[in-house]
Amino acid sequence: MDMKIHEQSEVAAAVEEIKVHSRENKISVKDLCAYFGKTKVLKNITMDIPSKKVVAIIGPSGCGKSTFLRSINRMHEVVGGTITGSILLDGEDVMKLDPVYLRRKIGMVFQKPNPFPTMSIANNVVAGLKMNGFRNKKALKGIVEKALKQAALWDEVKDNLNDSGANISGGQQQRLCIARTIAVNPEVILMDEPASALDPISTAKVEELIFELKKDFTIIIVTHNMQQAARVSDYTAFFYMGELVEYSDTKKMFTAPDKKQTEDYITGRFG
């Protein structure tokens, strides 16, 4: 898509509006371009992520939304991606931060639940902490309980904490992964299609959980499910062919988007 200059300025205006309306921005992205080899997969993305809000990223497959998500905690580097432009976390350039430290601050939940199969439920929750040398048993026990409660899983597993993390349902496994992410006390949680492999009841639980989590965390969620984006997020960004087409208040996005392209996408007329 060739985005005309006036359209780009409209996107910039909407982005500016979100910046003004949010009291505090957790993440500021400016002129972000991402490459895999010579292929440019993100083109000059500029947007702010408000603190303790949920931002949904939508767009057709290949539009760059997962790359955008992964750029934020530098996971794109793991698969050979490079970026230009800047991503600031509380004003700090993420490219200058230690990746391990960065990923502790910005946790990630993936599409497919991926608990460590040989570890117990409790050990799954505190795996990150233990890997970082945290050994205080009493404190770890408290963290397990707190993280599982925050992930709305405690009541379901509190009597089986020593069972394998692989022996619970898919929905429970995904909430276990969320508990594992929370346990290291991040500030931002990135979610890449967190409910796409789950049944409707588990999906509803994860969505309810997102509502709860935004009290404490800033959340960015990539989803193909339009209704999910509409339900869980405060702001929605529509990506197409590596460009940010529209970024606005979710209610506006799903009732009266500014761009015809956004309307065509959310109503299923293309993509």
Binding site: M226, Q227, A230, F254, T255, A256, P257, E263, I266, T267, G268
Partner: peptide
Amino acid sequence: LYQPVASDLR
């Protein structure tokens, strides 16, 4: 069946 949004929903 389709959970329409935006102008379709309207």
